[in-house]
């Protein structure tokens, strides 16, 4: 509880500092030559707040937020599923992994955001070009974790399951998959963030809907308060998604030792 209070205090101090520094006429200008310039460049917290409130009260934000979240969810789901599938396949098939290795490495080292304009050409300015960008970002995070996870399954565990009579399929189901899942969940927190990046960057580069589009529009009219409001909403959504992943993780990974709980008899 004390922690929460301290955390809120930090937030309060930051907002106060922001307010004091940007409120025209409160502090004599020491960097800019006019006293409304700070507010122009950095926005004002109370105005940002009212923009957000206004968005939600008028309902103006919902279609945009819905689109952005849909793009994020689709990019995340498709990217994670394909990363899991292809990761399992390549990890279990040494030949395929040897052949694909340079291409995987190449695609991974490529700054994949440069693909965004191409996706816009291929998939149009609707949601699918953003989903595609999200998928390319999410895929590799999940893929490498699954690949690593399967490769690092203890040989003992596999030998034991084989001696207990597990077939190839049963090995996959009861050893490789659960073992890879702990790695997958470690990567999903990253992946959610990247799916968001894909959606918003995609919207920046060309769209007619979405929170990224709102921010882009506001930037075009130098409306810094709206830009900050957009950023705030995106951040809140990313945090909510992250805690959702955390909840699912705790549900599915009950078998993992928590700190201070190991070796308890």
């Amino acid at each position: 509880m004390k922690l929460r209070i301290a955390q809120l205090l930090v937030l309060g101090l930051l907002v106060l500092f922001w307010y004091v520094m940007t409120k025209p006429g409160l502090v004599p200008p020491f960097y800019f030559d006019k006293d409304n310039r700070a507010a122009f460049f950095f926005g004002e917290p109370q105005k940002v707040f009212w923009v957000v409130v206004d968005w939600f009260l008028s309902g103006e934000i919902f279609p945009h937020l819905g689109i952005t979240l849909l793009e994020t969810a689709l990019g995340f789901a498709i990217g994670a599923a394909s990363g899991l599938g292809i990761g399992l396949w390549l990890a279990l098939s040494p030949t395929a992994s040897a052949i694909m290795d340079p291409y995987i490495k190449g695609f991974n080292s490529m700054p994949r955001v440069v693909l965004a304009p191409i996706f816009a050409v291929w998939f149009g300015l609707g949601i699918w070009s953003k989903v595609a960008l999200g998928v390319t970002l999410v895929f590799f995070v999940v893929f490498f974790n699954v690949y690593q996870g399967v490769r690092e399954v203890s040989p003992n565990l596999i030998a034991n399951a084989r001696m207990l009579g597990a077939s190839k399929r049963q090995l996959l189901r009861s050893i490789y998959l659960p073992s890879a899942m702990s790695w997958v969940f470690a990567s999903l927190h990253n992946a959610v963030g990247l799916a968001f990046v894909g959606a918003v960057v995609g919207e920046y580069l060309g769209s007619s809907m979405g929170v990224g589009y709102l921010i882009l529009q506001a930037e075009g009219t130098f409306d810094i308060n709206t830009v900050f409001a957009g950023i705030l909403v995106l951040t809140a959504c990313a945090l909510a998604l992250d805690s959702l992943v955390g909840t699912v993780e705790r549900r599915l990974m009950t078998w993992q030792p928590k700190a201070g709980q190991t070796e308890k008899v």
């Binding site: 034991n160 399951a161 207990l164 009579g165 009861s174 659960p178 899942m181």
Partner: peptide, 23 residues
């Protein structure tokens, strides 16, 4: 085995019956 070869994601009983399950 010498080293631990139990499946950490299965409870005790589910580990014991793993072989029966495979069969």
């Amino acid at each position: 085995f010498q080293a631990d070869a139990l499946m950490p994601w299965r409870t005790g009983i589910d580990n014991v019956i793993a072989g029966l399950e495979f069969r």
